[in-house]
Amino acid sequence: MSGLIDFLTDSANWSGTDGIPTRLLEHVQLSGVSILIALAPAILLGLYIGHTRRFEFIVSIVALGRALPSFAVMAFFFPMQLRFGWGFTPWAAVIAMVLLAIPPILTNTYVGVRDVDADTLEAARGMGMSERDVLRKIELPLAVPLAIAGLRTAAVQVVATMTLAALIAGGGLGRYIVDGSALGSNSESGVAKLLAGAVLVALLAIVVDGFLGIVERLASPRTTSRGRRRVPEEHLDVLPAPDLTAS
């Protein structure tokens, strides 16, 4: 433990290419890029499927993606990126993280749109709203809190899993974990480095979770009678993913 505190308070570890600010920034960049790439297809598909109720099987297939180990995705794409001449870049890890981030965002957006009150929709159509308006002015705003809850789950998972990038010579906080453990469990500085990596990643994940939690609350529409619309507990996680075996 004292080794960890020494590592975190040593000024040498706060500058340079292997310094904490650099690694932290790399980690945030890699995670951010992955989430941004995942966001558009996940939200658009979720809205489309939820609104039209067509191709609902896609949601089940995407839910299957949860069973795909990120480690394997990365291991699969890494040789390919070498073959395509992309060299030692973290792209394989980014692909794995995009695939990790899509299911929770898509599922939550879809559930959010699907669960909009039928009476509300009928009233909107009765008022002469076009399908486009129904989607844009009714379903989208009502689905936003759930979609953000999905984004929150995805972001936390991506931040915590991005450490794998270090296994394919990528940057980010995973570097400390991989480099630290490479020094062996007998090396005091190695263990300190490893611990520092783990603690920093966990802290980053908690900060991201807290921040998106606030965004989620702010995005929840306030209704006059019931206060803020509460996101049902079971939707906070990716939890009841649509039945993988929908009969």
Binding site: L194, G197, V201, A205
Partner: peptide, 20 residues
């Protein structure tokens, strides 16, 4: 908090304690 610790780190961290 246990859930947010990266699996990679957790496995390597536990190594020295419970046997690599």
């Amino acid at each position: 908090i246990l859930y947010t610790i990266p699996s990679l780190a957790l496995f390597m961290m536990l190594g020295p304690v419970t046997g690599t």
